[in-house]
Simulated scan of single mutants.
Amino acid sequence: MSVTLRAAPTVTAPGLLLRCWRDDDVDALVEAHRDPELRARTRNPLTTPAQARRWVDGNRQGWAAGRRFSFAVCEPTSDGDRVVGCVLLKDVVPGRADAEVGYWTAGPARGRQVAPRAVDAVSRWAFTRFAATGLARLELLHQLDNPASCRVAEKSGFPFVEVLPARPPFPLDGHRHVRHHR
Rank of each mutant, 00 (worst) to 15 (best):
140 L>T: 04
113 Q>V: 13
154 E>Q: 12
50 A>K: 11
26 V>P: 02
63 W>A: 02
57 D>A: 10
3 V>Y: 13
102 G>A: 04
22 R>L: 00
67 R>L: 12
89 L>W: 04
26 V>T: 06
54 R>S: 13
90 K>C: 13
134 G>Q: 05
167 R>G: 10
77 T>H: 07
131 A>R: 08
21 W>S: 05
140 L>G: 07
10 T>E: 12
137 R>M: 09
158 F>P: 07
109 A>E: 00
6 R>H: 13
83 V>K: 01
177 H>V: 07
163 V>R: 10
173 D>H: 14
100 E>N: 04
39 R>I: 06
117 R>N: 15
102 G>Y: 01
113 Q>P: 13
13 A>D: 00
117 R>H: 08
6 R>F: 10
170 F>V: 14
43 R>M: 09
101 V>F: 05
169 P>L: 11
77 T>E: 05
80 G>W: 07
74 C>D: 06
51 Q>H: 03
90 K>N: 13
132 A>F: 10
168 P>H: 12
18 L>Y: 12
31 E>K: 12
57 D>R: 02
162 E>F: 14
40 A>W: 01
120 D>G: 13
133 T>A: 09
51 Q>I: 03
80 G>T: 00
81 D>R: 15
54 R>K: 14
30 V>M: 07
141 L>G: 13
103 Y>D: 05
129 R>Y: 11
7 A>N: 14
14 P>A: 11
1 M>N: 11
92 V>T: 12
56 V>D: 00
148 A>V: 15
142 H>L: 08
44 N>W: 14
23 D>K: 12
182 R>M: 12
7 A>S: 04
20 C>S: 12
155 K>P: 10
22 R>P: 00
121 A>Q: 13
178 V>Y: 02
5 L>T: 15
50 A>T: 07
173 D>T: 15
93 V>S: 05
55 W>A: 04
48 T>F: 02
157 G>C: 01
63 W>L: 00
114 V>Y: 03
175 H>F: 14
120 D>A: 13
126 A>D: 00
26 V>M: 00
128 T>H: 15
4 T>L: 15
84 V>C: 03
48 T>M: 05
138 L>N: 04
152 V>K: 08
39 R>V: 06
161 V>K: 15
44 N>F: 12
180 H>D: 14
157 G>A: 04
174 G>M: 02
107 G>M: 02
170 F>E: 06
13 A>T: 05
180 H>W: 15
117 R>W: 05
146 N>A: 01
148 A>D: 05
31 E>L: 08
129 R>V: 13
163 V>L: 04
84 V>D: 04
32 A>P: 01
137 R>P: 01
37 E>I: 14
101 V>S: 06
12 T>S: 07
157 G>M: 00
134 G>Y: 11
52 A>S: 01
16 L>A: 08
171 P>W: 15
46 L>S: 01
35 D>V: 04
163 V>Y: 10
38 L>T: 06
50 A>V: 09
138 L>A: 05
